[in-house]
Structure formats: structure tokens, C-alpha cells
Design a protein around this nucleic acid. Sequence first.
RNA 1: GCCGAAGUAGCUCAAUAGAUAGAGCAACUGAAUCGUAAUCAGUAGGUUGUGGGUUUGAUUCCUACCUUCGGCACCA
Length: 588
Amino acid sequence: MINIKESEKLNTLNHSCAHLLAQAVKHLYPQAKFWVGPVIEDGFYYDIDLGDKVIKDEDLNKIEKEMKKIAKDGKRIVRHELSKKEALEMFKDDEYKLDLISRMDENEQVISCYTQGDFTDLCRGPHVESVKLLKHFKLLKFSGAYWKNDAKNKMLQRIYGVCFENEEDLQKYLEELEDRKQRDHRKIGKDQELFMSHELVGSGMPLWLPNGAFIRKQLENYIYEKEQKMGYKHVYTPCIGTTNLYKTSGHWDHYKENMFPVMKVDDEEFVLRPMNCPHHMLIFKNKLHSYRELPIRIGEFATDFRYEASGAVKGLERVRCMCQNDAHLFVTPEQIGKEFENVVNLILDVYKDFGITNYKFRLSLRDPKDKEKYFDDDKMWDVAESKLREVLNNLKVDYFEAIGEAAFYGPKLDVEVKPAIGPEITLSTCQLDFLLPRKFDLSYIDKNGEKEIPVVLHRAIFGTFDRFTAFLIEETKGIFPLWVTPVQVNIIPVNNTYHLEYANDIYNLLKEKNIRVELDDRNEKLSYKIRESQTRKIPYTIILGDKEKESKNISYRIFGKTETITLNTDEFIDKIIKSIINKDIEYK
RNA sequence: GCCGAAGUAGCUCAAUAGAUAGAGCAACUGAAUCGUAAUCAGUAGGUUGUGGGUUUGAUUCCUACCUUCGGCACCA
């Protein structure tokens, strides 16, 4: 664990390294103008306007070399302070710095700069005393990045790097990067034949291979059973709807750009559905409901289509055809708290079953200033947001608040996780919605015989099966829990002539107990088959030879371990079945 | 969508300063029957992502598109 003091030290180092990067860039490309160079979770970056120059792979090496050279010269890093007026004068030819200075707080009359040799940059600091202390750094990647994070602005060039106190830490970090590549779900998905894609099918349209499909089916069965126990009613609805359906819901205005284009048939217009809320609203509306029936929980494993930007598509994580673990809960205003709590508890429960511990709860709120995106009803938002906050506080779960992350119709709780490569993604979500019930004119009859508008909770525990599978692959490194994995036991007879019959007996015995077992009866060496059994990450490999045949036992080894355990067959079966029922995370 | 990179056998990769491509693994055939991570030999496998152009000749150069990768933006 890194303590706060050490992490501050590391931040200072990285921030100073960002300045070193800028100085080196300025040496090599004098036309360079600099925007900002902040420290991020992994290292730092700097956003730079290089005019017509475009950074290439080989430039990164050149810049890094120049950085080393400057660092070796060992200039001191000196802080000095200017008045706002002086600063405006000093940077009068630099529109980026002028922009920064002009946006500074009115009260902030003193502006600090840091100078190292021939390079001065506007900065609050702190910095290390000398560039000499910057030794163990590496530039990692570069890309375009919109000025002020706004796609309407011009694109600057961003260079990423990391800096550490010693070489060992740097090497450790680089190894970790390599490690992350190894557990990337796209790599494991290929290696273990979980899913594939084909350009003829289209970008973001994965094909689930038998192994991947098996895992997904396990997830479906698992959550279906849980939802049924909690009183959910599951439905099937079409993957296509009229555009009027989405105009009614309001999704059309917000998301038509990200839907597959309209299909015209006779006089009607259809789209592939991007979400299932409207269908479920209409199912609720199918008959008159009493307050006694509420909450009504409509669930569906629903395939949706979204035309995700080409640059956003990624493995199973961000796709254009996905299957949501969706449900809409129709509740009275008094039931919001309890139902929301049930959903949070279900999420916690599921994550525990899968051994997922690295996640963060995010309370996603509206940006009150953004009247365009968010439905304009301050009172509704205040009620909704404080309701969610209240439940989270009562449950005593850790969460953070994020302004501007809400859906257009309401605030939500999102569960954020970090994939092997790339930025954080949302796995589970639970959204509070006062709006759609109004748009669809939903109602129930309350105690007094009056019509009331229900409140809707949208929720997806796995999010989409696609994305959850992607995350599960990366969390487990492809070593799936016993109850999930497609093949649980692999039987290898030492010798096909003498041991195959006994191996077959054991195979049939396990098969009868619904254990997912394979028998490897190829004419190959034992060590060859064991190797393959290990690379396929099969949890248990049973080896049967003379010893086992005579004693009527089995010998097995557990994935990832080398020792051999000999056991009575019934004991082995009991053990495995128990482990499956318990949903053990590790193989024992 | 934007900035940048890449696409060669099922997989991982090599090669060519422009003269139609090789290896390992996998597959197939045969031999070996071998007790805990790769037995040996042989066979087959490619319109070098797709279309267009330059050229006597293009996998290599140009161009458009498709797909993938690293970021940015987006994410109901």
C-alpha cells in the first residue's frame, strides 16, 4: 500500500516530469505551444499544439532522449511569482496560457511559474528541486486530444508518460502493463475460443463461440433464478420498434444519432431498439393496476442495438449488439427506498458470488447547468437525487458523487470497474425515473381509488452479459469459477490399451452426476495431454493408470498446481459437487 | 466521429531496397504405448484485409474503403 506522503512525492515527480517533457518538446519543435500537463492515475500527460507537426513513433524516442539529456545537465527548478498583469505580458503570444491566466480566480493575484534552464511554464507546483532527480521515466503513448475535452475544439497532441523514484519501480510498472495485456479479455477470448468477430458480420458484433456461450448461459441461468426468487416477472419483447415508440419515450431526441438508421416499410418507420424501457412501459400499461400489486418487476434478457462510434467499439466490452440484463421496477413513491435498497443488495450479493472486489459505487447526478440534456424539473431532480443518497447512506456503502453523469430522465447508481486496458466502465446500474411513466401516461389506482403515477427504477445487475463476461474474463484471467467454466474435469488415461475402460467408467460416473467432464483418449503422451489440460485451464485433471485401476481410486491435479492428490472416487465427486453448489471462487 | 498505428497460413510471427512468400504451434497421415507442462517423421495449408491506380512486373509504392489496436470525444 502506498501511503499519502509517498503518493504526493510520486505526484510531484510526475508533474515535474511533465515539465521536462514540455521542455524537450520545445527544444525539438520550437513552434510548440502548451496547454496543460496534469498528473493522472498512472503518470502524467501533456497536451501540446505542435502546429502542422504530427507526432510519430520515432519522435517519442527522440523526445525521450532529449529529456534524458536535459535531466543530465541538471538545471535547478526555480519557482517565481508574478502578478496577473506581468503574467499576461509574459505569455502574450501564447493563446493557451492567456486562456489559463484569464480563467484564474479573481482573488488569485499572484501567479506562480517554474523555470528550469531555458524553459518556463505556468504552474502551481510543487516540483522537485532539480531536473537531475528525474531519471526513471518513460514515454508510453501519444494521441490526439480535444482542447478542453470538447470535440468542437481543435485537436491537440497528447503525450503520456510515467516517472518513478527508482528503476526498479519503473520496471515493475512496465511489467504490470505487460501483465494487463495478458489478461485482456480480447486475448483470452481468442486463446480460449470464447468469442470471435468477422468483418462481414460487422464491427462491434461479436459471435459467441461454444465456450463463451456456455459461460454466458451460466450467467443467464444464475441471474434468472435470483430475479425469479425476488419476484421479477420475465418477458420477451421485439428487437425492433416504430420510431414513434422512441419519440414517445423521449429517447429519439436524445439518442437518434446513436441508433441504427430508420427502416421504412410501407408507411411505417422502424428502428432496431437501443433499449427496452418503452416496451416494458407498455407491458405495464397493458392492464389496470392496483397499488396492492406494486412493486411490479418486469425483467428481460433483451438484445439491443446501438450505433456506437467506430472508435469506441472494443471486444465484448463496448459493442453495437448487446444483451442487457434489464428490468424495470414499477413502484409507489413510498416503495422507492426499499426497492432501490433491494437492488443494491442484489448487486453486492452477485459481486460476492463472483469474487469481484475492485469496484466503486458512483452516484451519478445531473449537471443543473445543462438544461439541454436533462429534463427540466428541478424539484423532481432534487427529490430523486436525495432519495438515492439517503438509501446509500443508510446502507453504509462507500460511494462517490459525479455531476453530469445522470441519465436524461433521472439520477442513477452506477458500479464502475477498471478493465485490463482502457478507462473505467460501468457494469451495473440502477436508475430512478419519474419521467418515462409520465411520457407513457402510466398509472395505478391508489388506496383512495385515485389514479397515481408510478415511479420506475431501471436496473441492470450484470449491465450487459457481453460486458460482464468481458470483465469476468479479465478478473479471473480466464480461470473461471468451477460452476461457470465449460469443462470442469478432464480425464486422462495413462495408457489407452490398459486404462481406457476404467477411464470410461469414471467418465460415465461423473457424467451421471452432471459434472462437465471430458475424456482425452487420443494417442498422445501423458505429459502432452497434461500440458494441454493446463493451458485450457481445466480445473481438475484426473489421471488414471494401474495404481488407480487396482485401488479403484482416482488421482487428480488442480489447475495451476503440480501436486497429485489421490482420492476415493465418491469423495472426489462429493467434493466437486459441494464446490459447485457453494459457488467456490477457487479450486480446492 | 477525431488523431495516430497496424492487417502476411487457423494461431504467433518472419521476409521482400518492386521479380507472386517462410518458420514454430495447430490440422491431417503414419510410427512410438510413453505416470504428471510439448515423441518423431511426413503431408497439406496463402488471390499477403478488399477494390482501384502507377509499373514490363505490386504483398512491397499511391489511393479509397473495411477491420483491428492506442488515445480523445461519446456512452440511454
